[in-house]
Design a protein around this nucleic acid. Structure first.
Length: 768
RNA sequence: GGGCGAGUGGUGGAAUUGGUAUACACGCAUGCCUUAGGAGCAUGUGCGAAAGCAUGAGAGUUCGAGUCUCUCCUCGCCCACCA
């Protein structure tokens, strides 16, 4: 096991010092998965065996379970505790020494059932949550002092946090579990809405009301009951205050009957918890803070009592469809919060809001509550998703781990002089049936002498994973023949860090992380000069199969490059891959373009027939333009447009009919990285020395590229009406005058324009 | 469920900071040269008769939007009961 978690902080913070693609950085960050949270202790209370309550720790503390949470602000709503089935406390409580549980056998059976299930199944999404209550023991909520039940459930993972959580009403998983096992839930957090259209005003009285907001749906028409106000320009749902001694459901029924006359309603359910809104109530001239409960009903019968005169004067009833409700922009500041609950039925609130029912913290914002409650009830801790690295493998294929086990001296490292430990020659290297390494059956390998005492000892037979070599092979490549060290200090200093590491996205998480860790370890021990192994990390897209799916041998939809190489040549294949699309994006393989690339290379080969003493200045100019473009494109991984530019150059030469030998040579140097065979073939033909690709990279003469004319687009009210050509030195006035003189422009600009915009060298825009 | 990315001609795709959308290539059409053509060369090719209209849909900002903002749709990749 490698303690990579000890490097978690550095692996995260050092990302600031390297140039990785943002998405690669993000993946590293997420894999390391730092989260700040709190550990909270829950004391246990033993019901079955009260004597256990007297067992105190060395400092007089009671038995307790430590939970991890990032939302300590919901602590007052912790109505149960859940431990991972593998939690140490559970293991102890179910062993033969203890008799604390009323349902020990049931618990043991559940723990067993979880063990035999593969992890893939356990973590599958949408899986029904399972668990068992630990009967005979209660936990004490440190905030409320209440006794709460304790469960074990497989949705709590043993390796994350402390392997124990408290369950509350503000986590979808907890709510799903609590509903299934009939654990009561308690809302302690509500969303808060600040009405920006009618914000609370300075100096007005602040008032508080509990209200209901009632949504009534007619199941036959799927329409919702709304009120269209007569004296105000708005439409609302039915709302009203909750009176003394009334609950939200009763208040809702009363309001609906009063305001609309409907009374035959079927309750669907209250939608989520309350919502706090703050606004200025103009009609009462007070600031309002409202806790509103949304309640959802279905209309059973359309029988309607007559509404009072007063009600009829205030508003008309209106039935609106879902689309119409959204379009009507109802006069509710919290519409965005409660309406999704109607539509999706998803009403567990997990966001940031205001605490309710939380003792002295009631009314506090959740963010603020977290820091003060952590101080009072818990300890601030940082957790990582990153786990330690299980490094040993039970197979033949891998570097042997150079350790020897001696009965007397324990684990002893193989002395440096005997390194490396080599794999023995074997006929069979398949895994054994008993799960042990295949090496364990080879006595000549296993049996050895203890380097300490010289007595009989056994070698470690596990081997290293493939990641071992891939984490640092590039360091050896620097100085492969060195027999004193894996590479000399000088060579390391010269070559590292690696300037650019390009690879597929499949290696951006594990391999990148492992090799960074490995390098940091070597750095700490003084073996490499830099803490980070790679200065820059880029990635390429995948070439997909023609049907757009990933190529795989098992699917048989692979394209064999050899076929293309045989038919069209290696250069064609190479250039085509670059030309197919942006380097970073996945693209389906297609042979459609191959012929085009082949034609381009054929034309390129024929360029030698066009060698002449003089060439058209257009060719010279295009050559230098090409050098600039290719140089930039390579720098930015835009190989597809680089290839396009190569084609443009060849087309230009063909069009103009002649090229000097010197220009062709220059072109071959920029062609060489893309089509090395063709480039070198021609390079030799024109008498070039050595290889084209090792010549100094050409430098463009930018003075040739300066234009003496400019093309200027002329817009009138944003529409292109003409293009004019002007000498580069032309003033704005000259350009505008020429533009206005254009027939097609004059047609639209008949009066003096309101505004004229001139963009240097690009366009003129008239606004009329 | 979360994260990231992408939607532009018949097709793959260009368009550096908001400034002439469709570069380059495939395909297609017509012609030339050919005994022949999966060769070569030339010309044309977003839609529309035209005014005009077009970058997944809809809104917004702007003199001007493929590019910026918001809402939504579709597809791809990665991660996923991480408290």
């Amino acid at each position: 096991m490698f303690e990579i978690t000890k490097y978690a902080d550095r692996l995260l913070s050092d990302l600031d010092t390297v140039n990785y693609l943002p998405k690669i950085k993000k993946q590293q960050e997420e894999w390391i998965g730092r989260s700040e949270g709190a550990e909270v202790d829950f004391e246990l209370h033993f019901v079955k065996d009260p004597s256990a309550n007297e067992n105190r720790g060395p400092n007089g503390e009671k038995a307790r379970i430590t939970t991890f949470t990032t939302r300590i602000d919901t602590l007052f709503g912790a109505t149960y505790l859940v431990l991972a089935p593998e939690h140490l406390w559970v293991t102890l409580a179910t062993d033969d020494q203890h008799d604390l549980l009323e349902n020990k056998e049931e618990v043991k059976a559940y723990v067993e059932s979880v063990k035999v299930r593969p992890e893939i199944e356990r973590t599958a999404e949408g899986k029904e949550k399972t668990g068992v209550e630990l009967k005979g023991v209660k936990a004490i909520n440190p905030a409320t002092g209440e006794q709460i039940p304790v469960f074990i459930a497989d949705y709590v993972l043993p390796q994350y946090g402390t392997g124990a959580i408290f369950g509350d009403a503000h986590d979808v998983r907890d709510v799903a579990f609590a509903k299934k096992y009939n654990v009561p839930l308690k809302e302690v957090l509500i969303p808060t809405v600040y009405d920006h259209r009618n914000p609370p005003q300075e100096g007005k009285e602040n008032t508080f009301r509990k209200t209901v907001l009632v949504i009534v749906r007619d199941p036959e028409t799927n329409k919702y009951l709304c009120l269209k106000w007569k004296k105000q320009p708005w439409t609302t749902f039915i709302t009203g205050g909750v009176e003394e001694g009334e609950d939200a459901i009763e208040a809702s029924r009363r309001e609906v009957e009063e305001e609309t006359g409907y009374s035959d309603l079927r309750l669907i359910r209250p939608l989520g918890g309350m919502i706090e809104s703050q606004f200025f109530a103009a009609h009462k001239n007070v600031n309002r803070r409202v806790h509103s409960q949304t309640v959802f009903f279905e209309l059973v019968s359309r029988t309607q009592k007559e509404r009072t005169q007063e009600e009829q004067e205030q508003y008309d009833l209106l039935w609106l469809t879902e689309e119409e409700v959204v379009a009507a922009k109802l006069q509710h500041g919290d519409f965005e919060t409660f309406w999704p609950r109607v539509i999706t039925g998803d009403d567990v609130f997990t966001g940031e809001g205001v605490l309710i029912d939380s003792g002295e913290y009631t009314g506090m914002k959740s963010e603020d509550a977290r820091s003060v409650m952590t101080e009072r009830y818990g300890r601030l801790v940082v957790k990582y998703k990153l786990r330690d690295w299980v490094f040993s493998r039970q197979r033949y294929w891998g570097e042997p781990i150079p350790l020897i086990h001696c009965e007397k001296d324990g684990w002893v490292a193989v002395p440096d002089a005997e390194l490396p430990v080599r794999l023995p020659e074997v006929e069979k290297y398949e895994p054994t049936d008993n799960g042990e390494s295949p090496l364990s059956t080879i006595d000549s390998f296993v049996n050895t002498k203890c380097p300490e005492c010289g007595g009989a000892a056994k070698r470690e037979t596990d081997t290293m994973p493939n990641w071992a070599g891939s984490s640092w092979y590039f360091l050896r490549y620097i100085d492969p023949k060195n027999d004193q060290a894996f590479a000399s200090k000088e060579a390391l200093k010269y070559w590292t860090p690696v300037d650019l590491y390009n690879g597929g996205m499949e290696h951006t998480v594990l391999h990148l992380l492992y090799s960074r860790f490995w390098n940091k370890f070597l750095f700490d021990r003084g073996h490499v000069p830099t803490s980070e192994p790679y200065a820059r990390r880029h990635s390429h897209g995948l070439i997909m199969s023609e049907d757009g799916t990933k190529m795989s041998k098992s699917k048989g939809n692979v394209v064999n490059p050899d076929d293309i190489v045989n038919e069209f040549g290696a250069d064609t294949f190479r250039v085509n891959i670059l030309f197919i699309g942006p380097f970073e994006e996945a693209a389906p393989w297609t042979t459609n373009g191959v012929i085009g690339v082949r034609r381009f290379l054929d034309k390129t080969v024929r360029l030698v027939e066009k060698i002449a003493e003089v060439e058209d200045p257009a060719v010279t100019k295009m050559l230098h333009k090409t050098i600039v473009k290719i140089t930039e494109d390579i720098e930015n991984f835009r190989f597809n447009t680089a290839v396009a530019q190569l084609m443009i150059f060849v087309n230009t030469v063909q069009e103009r009919g002649a090229i000097t030998k010197e220009s062709l040579g220059t072109f071959l140097k920029v062609l060489a990285p893309f089509a090395p065979h063709v480039a070198n073939e021609l390079w030799e033909k024109i008498g070039g020395e050595g290889f084209a690709e090792i010549q100094p990279w050409p430098v463009a003469d930018t003075s040739i590229l300066v234009e003496d004319e400019m093309q200027i687009a002329v817009q009138v009210n944003g529409k292109i009406r003409a293009t004019i050509t002007m000498p580069v030195g032309a003033t704005d006035e000259e350009i505008v005058a020429k533009a206005r003189a254009e027939e097609n422009v004059a047609k639209y600009v008949t009066i003096e324009p309101k505004k004229v915009i001139v963009v240097k060298g690009k366009l003129v825009s008239f606004v009329v």
